[in-house]
Design a protein around this nucleic acid. Structure first.
Lengths: 191, 191
DNA sequence: CCGTGGGTAGACCGATCGGTCTCCGGCCCC
DNA sequence: GGGGCCGGAGACCGATCGGTCTACCCACGG
């Protein structure tokens, strides 16, 4: 199993990178709040940048646990699972350690032309949208690409709004907007 | 009139803060690309933080030119003006100097508990939503608060998605989503 | 009982940070 | 034509940055 200092570093970095900002978080603070020696961080991760990459992986894992475990576990139909995704978002927002999506925040504070961060965020977004597209198609929506892009945009809007306002209930606004999108798309099919 | 070095500094900071990140942009780079002396920056703005405040003011001014000049100038009805806002967003995204909203980006890379940045972003958001609420009410929508929150969320989603993907046409996705929201709200009124 | 490996504590490095200061060139107005 | 001032060039400051390295501690297996 992974050693205790390693996971402690990952969790501390995940919290600090989002709540304080990545550039604003010094290595000294990470190791102090993780209760770990400086050398241990560099033994385990090699650099602050690699630690950030590990945080990316951890947040991506959370999303795919949602798609591959939590959502199928509800037993709901495709439309219900899409809407339930916003309940999972609300739970995330309300968890007390939510300060935005680390992918979005990282893109915001890194160079956007030619940097490596945006590429990772784009890949993450692509993989999320693949899962969304599957649900949308299963729901019987004709223009699945359009509906997927709309839902993806609403999800990002909910995440950013929750970060700025610190109000978890914006997920319910996103849920209602998603319902508008799905209703519109399914009504179009009924023609 | 404001002196040339002052506006040059503001424009350079606006571009660099968004394209490279605020913390990642050093004062040395700002003055180099602005072609201005270090002393001039501190004579005009006093600190990097105050320069950031000026960038906040400049971006807020853009939004209120939209609401108070551009949108009324279209002559469209309230629903049409709400949708036209997304055309303005698309023009903003496609301008070549778009790397996200400086308010959102600044919140993303600053401390979110007890910091001054989030307060400024919240105030900006409140003032935008006031204008949105006026348009939504004028469009004859019953639950104006809900529709306003939905539209605000879609706008933020479009901004963030455009930042990550560098694709201006996501504004059209936002426009179509806004149409779904308005249609749903206006159909509810027809009952 | 001793050796080894994982971990802590913390000194230390060069680079860069935001901010202050001095010096000097050139332009404008009396 | 001369004095005042705006602003460019850049040296300089203490603090902090990410990263390296040494010394020591301690638990565990032969």
């Amino acid at each position: 199993m992974t050693s205790a200092p390693e996971t402690k570093l990952l969790q501390t970095a995940q919290r600090l990178f989002c709540s304080e900002g990545i550039h604003a978080t010094g290595v000294a603070r990470i190791i102090r709040e993780a209760g770990v020696a400086r050398k241990t961080l560099y033994d385990k991760y090699g650099s602050k940048e690699n630690l950030l990459r590990a945080v990316f992986r951890a947040e991506a894992d959370m999303w795919f646990r949602w798609f591959d475990h939590d959502l199928p576990g509800t037993g709901a139909d495709a439309r219900g699972r899409i809407l339930h995704l916003f309940d999972l978002l609300q739970h995330w927002f309300a968890g007390g350690n939510f300060f935005g999506c680390v992918f979005i925040n990282a893109v915001a504070e890194h160079e956007k032309e030619g940097g490596w961060v945006r590429g990772i965020a784009l890949d993450h977004r692509r993989r999320i949208n693949e899962r969304l597209h599957g649900l949308v198609t299963e729901a019987g929506i004709e223009d699945a690409e359009l509906a997927t892009e709309k839902l993806s945009l609403v999800i990002d809007g909910a995440i950013v709004t929750a970060m700025v306002t610190a109000n978890p209930s914006v997920a319910a606004i996103g849920r209602a907007t998603a319902a508008d999108i799905l209703d519109h798309a399914l009504r179009a099919r009924a023609h």
